[in-house]
Design a protein around this nucleic acid. Sequence first.
DNA 1: TTGTAGGCGTTATCAT
DNA 2: ATGATAACGCCTACAA
Lengths: 348, 348
Amino acid sequence: MQAKDPKPARTSPPIPATPGKATLADVARVAGVSTITASRALGNPTIVAERTRLKVQQAVSQTGYVPNLLAGGLKSSRSRVIACLVPTISSGSSFMLAVQSLTETLAAAGYQVMLGQRGYQQDTENALIDAVVSRRVDGIVLMGAIRSAPMRRRLQAIGIPVVEAWDKTRTPVDMLVGFSHEAAGAAMANYVHRKGYRQAAMIVASEPRSALRARGFAKAAARHGHTGIPAAQIDAPTRLRHGRAGTAELLALHPKLDVIFCASDLVALGAITELKQRGLRVPEDVAVLGFGDLDFAVDIDPALTTVQIDSVEIGRRSADMLMEKLAGKPVAEPVVDLGFSIIERDSG
Amino acid sequence: MQAKDPKPARTSPPIPATPGKATLADVARVAGVSTITASRALGNPTIVAERTRLKVQQAVSQTGYVPNLLAGGLKSSRSRVIACLVPTISSGSSFMLAVQSLTETLAAAGYQVMLGQRGYQQDTENALIDAVVSRRVDGIVLMGAIRSAPMRRRLQAIGIPVVEAWDKTRTPVDMLVGFSHEAAGAAMANYVHRKGYRQAAMIVASEPRSALRARGFAKAAARHGHTGIPAAQIDAPTRLRHGRAGTAELLALHPKLDVIFCASDLVALGAITELKQRGLRVPEDVAVLGFGDLDFAVDIDPALTTVQIDSVEIGRRSADMLMEKLAGKPVAEPVVDLGFSIIERDSG
DNA sequence: TTGTAGGCGTTATCAT
DNA sequence: ATGATAACGCCTACAA
């Protein structure tokens, strides 16, 4: 009953010896149908006879067949993989929450996520783009905008759908979902003014978005008559210890400051830790303002006043936009400003 | 001078109009060599003449060629992609640090990481395995062991290299790099005994590893004559607020407890927050012990006594083992116990 | 409803 | 050192 097999006959029963290596042709042989019928039974079950479908189904479980999306993708040039490129895979960053919702939303639609770390150097980034493009990802989500013009041109030339997330820029490569970091900084400065603080200071991370917020803060503060806002510079990604060190530095130079706008919630927690240890009260002596509204912000003592970003929504919208575009639909709103809100709690 | 092109002639000069769409055949044509020579010049430069290599190089930049690893992978059955399956993509988890070093190590060797979220349900996990296997990943790194026997059999049947990370189990699917959570729990119980605490309690997360540590702790405590260690149950992934809630619960039921072993550093931070807010001193009134030695552990107040795990090494070793195996070498040490250490600081 | 032929872009195999 | 040819596994035509 065995069909002649042109392959260098190994054991050659219809059921391949090496599981996971079965091909659609194997399934078809076992089911007694042609390859294309097996293909249809799997991918378009409505157009094959019920009996055929069942035979194929059974052959699939018998052979342990797992489709090869590489082969399918070669023909259709759709890999059903989306690249997600983050500045750094660090815990404590609100990026990861967006990555999570992105992954979940995409998984529900049959897409997988290829993760890449952009790093802070141009070289790495170029190589990373090469790496994902050569794997024919169907789209790219960039956490953080593209700032270099050559890179922007390059991505445009490649022609893959791209979503830039987190930053709102005037020159998106393709699609964008984010908010204005400068506006967020300005909003915090206005809040500080409204609350009547007199000596503001900042802890700023060496990362474009933090710098933008600092700039927005300084500009708005200037409008209220406060110029020369002192700033402590820290490294990115931000850590609790940077908050402590930055606070110590600011306190030494400006003993009379009464509020600190921090680069992140983690930094804010560090600031609070440092202040409390020095016997200063938060917010009575020095107020602390965070950024991100991470999970823990509401539960620390005092509860953190911070800028809330809807990371989950950023991830979901990025996925949705990408999938709209991949479905060939015109993307209703290719540039989305999700905004932010200041959550007033107890720390300032 | 134009070769006849069988394709539906668009503009059809040797340099394709659509960048990123050039194929190896285009490159070969421009360079005036055969496709296979172009392939070799790129993938195996040592075996072609220097002059040829240069011509091909130039043709590549002229055409904007980006290799199609899908096509190459179809033939060579090597996708140069590794799946990394984590329980959950959450910030405060030490998994992400391992994911980071895994990604970096693999990237340096030309591999990309496909990220997947296992979730806490079997269904999801099965579908996830399907998703990555059908994309023909070269290997799988599982953060957290496989506990279900059918799943273990399934992975073994598929025959892809698998690394289970974080847990040490007696029945690894393939390779493993981790440590014994039960031993870590026991070590903490011994530490507690050595330090002379009398009334220990635990905050335990609904997640197998935390449960294992709790078991190890309870067993070792029993050996020192302490039975019935009270435990507060919290959800996974762990959060700061769970630490507060768990502490409140324990305090209500066991007002005389003098040390709490927490499911994670984040939970420990929550415990400290709660205790301090109630006017209790750490460690004088109640000591707090963490798990993970996350980045912030050393910088909180009081500095956290905790179990240190070398997450970075877990990621790196996972990558190394996988690459050894993929290179066809026998893996020197397919099961690695990386151990842990208790870092004594100020919290207990 | 089912089948046949051909091709997606690359690399393995076997020549030259 | 370089080429011609044939797969790799699937799916889109087009037939039957």
